[in-house]
Design a protein around this nucleic acid. Sequence first.
DNA 1: ATATGTGAAGATGTTCACAGCT
DNA 2: AGCTGTGAACATCTTCACATAT
Lengths: 209, 209
Amino acid sequence: MRVAEPTVERLVQYYRLLEQLREEGRLVVSSHQMGEMLGIKASQVRKDLSYFGEIGKRGVGYHVDRLYGHISRILASPQIWRIGLVGVGHLGYALLGHSAFRSDKFRIDALFDVDPAKVGQEISGVPCFHLNDLPEVVRERDIQVLILTVPASAAQACVDKAVESQVVKGILSFASTALVAPEGMLVYRVDISVELEKLLFFLKGGAGV
Amino acid sequence: MRVAEPTVERLVQYYRLLEQLREEGRLVVSSHQMGEMLGIKASQVRKDLSYFGEIGKRGVGYHVDRLYGHISRILASPQIWRIGLVGVGHLGYALLGHSAFRSDKFRIDALFDVDPAKVGQEISGVPCFHLNDLPEVVRERDIQVLILTVPASAAQACVDKAVESQVVKGILSFASTALVAPEGMLVYRVDISVELEKLLFFLKGGAGV
DNA sequence: ATATGTGAAGATGTTCACAGCT
DNA sequence: AGCTGTGAACATCTTCACATAT
């Protein structure tokens, strides 16, 4: 069964909430309570969870531990993903230390840059290679995922190198630009300036003039 | 007329593309060509642009300069937004220097942190205040927008301070947590770990087990 | 001939409302 | 009585198909 992207997005949030509730020693939680805490409608919570079978108890709610384990398995990976981080500027450096990147689901295994001062060094314990060697290095190291924190002008060249490697399957790009990639390569974009523009657009109350 | 969020998101992309085309001296572009370059269907491009009147020429396409000016006005702000950046860690620092933040539509006017080594200093030319003084400082400086680059555990407290100020209207949060805000305050979230989880989920091919 | 603008159809996502368990 | 699970209704977003203009 195909799970929709908005559902996956909310599953991650349910997961984080349940982690918290578990620590607090809470045993049971209702869809209404979860929704309240996350700003999501209770019916949406139930619909999302129902895709994966009857996991709650009618008249009672969801057993915190059980639901936590359940979502954990849904989100689980068959392997530990090895990730290459391309572009060790401020943003790349920030991600290296980001708490979201302390996970046993993946680890940043190689850095790539073009700056001679960085290439050949270890940064936060991760070796940095030259961008030109990317296809070779990702093959050797079994890296299937790239994170791009390079300037917009350099992003497409990085995608092209990833395609050339034939082993990279997915890319998370922070570059503020469109990217073209072949069918079968999954590209997600986090575009900070787009998010800010959207916020300001709706703050001013819609289309101007 | 209400403009939908996905449309605004694409307008920003059209705008960036047209900026490029202008520099290249291109005079005319078709919806098909724009779509090709951005990975968007031509019909979607036309639909988006049609919301704002007949701006193209049938049989010809869109006049680059004219369309650029048109979208520019749609996205324009009635004022230069003053922004407060809360949390001057790696990520905050990265955003301070981010190219997306070189804009004449807004400027980062104040920093907030709790680290005594930062409070009272100027960082990249922007004064840093203590988080506790946020309500007062944003009122004095006419700051209506906050960007949160604080740990998840601190994010809600920042929102509460923003609410207390009574002048902050919008927040862009990079914290990996849900936030509750009153009606009328606009909160956008960029959740890096959620994006990564989504990518890995669909890379492995959907729900596991 | 060619490319826009748009109503209608289609696809996707959310909410409702209530049957069915506990 | 209380809360889940879910079909149906609703809302939103995208794509199609073609009339319309250059």
